[in-house]
Measured scan of single mutants.
Amino acid sequence: MASQGTKRSYEQMETDGERQNATEIRASVGKMIDGIGRFYIQMCTELKLSDYEGRLIQNSLTIERMVLSAFDERRNKYLEEHPSAGKDPKKTGGPIYKRVDRKWMRELVLYDKEEIRRIWRQANNGDDATAGLTHMMIWHSNLNDTTYQRTRALVRTGMDPRMCSLMQGSTLPRRSGAAGAAVKGVGTMVMELIRMIKRGINDRNFWRGENGRKTRSAYERMCNILKGKFQTAAQRAMMDQVRESRNPGNAEIEDLIFLARSALILRGSVAHKSCLPACVYGPAVASGYDFEKEGYSLVGIDPFKLLQNSQVYSLIRPNENPAHKSQLVWMACNSAAFEDLRVLSFIRGTKVSPRGKLSTRGVQIASNENMDAMESSTLELRSRYWAIRTRSGGNTNQQRASAGQISVQPAFSVQRNLPFDKPTIMAAFTGNTEGRTSDMRAEIIRMMEGAKPEEMSFQGRGVFELSDERAANPIVPSFDMSNEGSYFFGDNAEEYDN
Rank of each mutant, 00 (worst) to 15 (best):
P318A: 07
P410S: 08
G282M: 12
L47W: 10
C223G: 02
C44K: 00
I444P: 09
A129N: 00
D468E: 05
S326I: 02
R389Q: 11
F206I: 14
N59K: 01
A237H: 00
S297P: 05
R221V: 12
R446V: 01
V29N: 14
Q12C: 00
F258P: 03
P322Q: 04
P83Q: 00
K305R: 02
D439Y: 03
G94F: 08
A251L: 00
E465G: 13
S467W: 02
P410C: 00
D439R: 02
Q168D: 04
V408P: 09
A251G: 12
I257G: 08
R152P: 02
M43A: 08
A323R: 06
H135G: 06
I138C: 07
Q149H: 04
V352A: 02
S50Y: 01
N124T: 09
G212Q: 06
S467I: 15
D51M: 09
M374S: 03
N473H: 02
A123I: 05
A451L: 06
R348G: 15
G86C: 02
M426Q: 01
A251P: 12
Q168K: 01
M13N: 05
R213Q: 04
A153G: 02
S486I: 10
K103S: 01
E220H: 11
A179R: 10
M163L: 01
A471P: 08
L276S: 12
G185Y: 08
R400Q: 02
K48I: 08
R470Y: 11
D128E: 05
G94Y: 10
S69K: 01
S438T: 06
Y281T: 09
R400I: 02
N224W: 10
S335E: 09
R55C: 09
S84G: 05
R221Y: 12
S28A: 00
A181D: 04
G228Q: 07
F39M: 03
M66Y: 10
I265N: 08
F230G: 03
E380A: 01
G212L: 05
F479V: 00
W330P: 05
G288P: 10
V280C: 03
F429E: 03
K351W: 08
L298G: 06
A451T: 13
A286I: 09
R74L: 14
K198H: 08
R156A: 13
T157D: 14
R38W: 10
L61F: 06
M159T: 12
